[in-house]
């Protein structure tokens, strides 16, 4: 009998939760250090979903805006090496500055509302997409371009029919990386100043030693990340049916 591939990790998860539950019960671990899984599940309410929705919205908005901007920037960079030389160091500067260091500034500028979190998520997503897309746009073998010019193809046709499709695997693997980062960005933004969101829940519950609520927020963030990653992976398989690239 064939076992579905998702069954193996799920059964491991179930065993882990079971061991956790039993360990907490029989070893009398204090609830403020490690609550049992059932206690954590008991804290899940509509309010948690509201916070999850807020964080999802911020992360997704930052992710989409940054990915689109990074893709367009990559197109511009590949067309103009001058622009690449001039602006690329700036992109690296954004990448190397820790987001945690910038986040308070973002909140100071944009307030505790949506935009500071969307910007934080966007800043952290931008670089991987930019770098991988540039790499992807240069990925087609130069022989392909010779072939295209022997067909009398214009630059534009070579771009559309060669560069873009060859770039797609790189673009998608960048999306997978940045989708997880977007959630990090949104939560870091919420740490600094927010009234909603999983980051806010994490801050408040940890200061009140509501460890069960803290855990439920952590799991909600993890679930969101996994879901987003899986969705992009699913989309990738449909769009780039011919291959998947190995990139970072």
């Amino acid at each position: 009998m064939k076992v579905p591939s998702s069954l193996t990790p799920l059964s491991f998860l179930a065993v882990t939760l079971l061991v956790w539950e039993l360990a907490v019960r029989f070893l009398n671990v204090p609830a403020y250090l490690l609550p049992s899984p059932t206690a954590i599940i008991a804290t899940v309410d509509s309010e948690l979903f509201l916070h999850l929705a807020v964080t999802s919205g911020e992360a997704l908005a930052g992710f989409f805006i940054a990915s689109a901007c990074a893709f367009l920037a990559a197109l511009a960079f590949v067309r103009s090496p001058l622009l690449e030389r001039g602006v690329f160091p700036l992109a690296i500067a954004i990448k190397t500055t820790p987001l945690v260091a910038i986040a308070p500034l973002l909140v100071l500028w944009m307030g505790t509302g949506w935009w500071s979190k969307i910007t934080a998520a966007g800043l952290i997503c931008f670089f991987p997409v930019l770098v991988n897309t540039i790499k992807g746009l240069k990925a087609a073998d130069s022989k392909y371009f010779k072939l295209f010019s022997s067909f009398g193809a214009s630059q534009r046709q070579a771009f559309r029919k060669l560069r873009i499709p060859f770039c797609l695997p790189y673009f998608f693997s960048a999306l997978k990386i940045s989708s997880s980062l977007a959630i990090v960005g949104a939560i870091v933004g919420e740490f600094v100043g927010a009234t909603h969101g999983l980051g806010y829940v994490i801050m408040v519950s940890s200061s009140h030693l509501d460890t069960d609520i803290l855990f439920s927020a952590i799991f909600a963030a993890a679930a969101l990340g996994i879901l987003l990653f899986q969705f992009i992976g699913w989309l990738e398989q449909r769009v780039i049916f011919w291959q998947t690239a190995e990139t970072e």
Partner: peptide, 14 residues
């Protein structure tokens, strides 16, 4: 009219 062929097939995989 000229037809050109290289050592690699250079097909578009999609």
């Amino acid at each position: 009219r000229v037809g050109l062929m290289f050592q690699k097939p250079l097909l578009l995989p999609w």
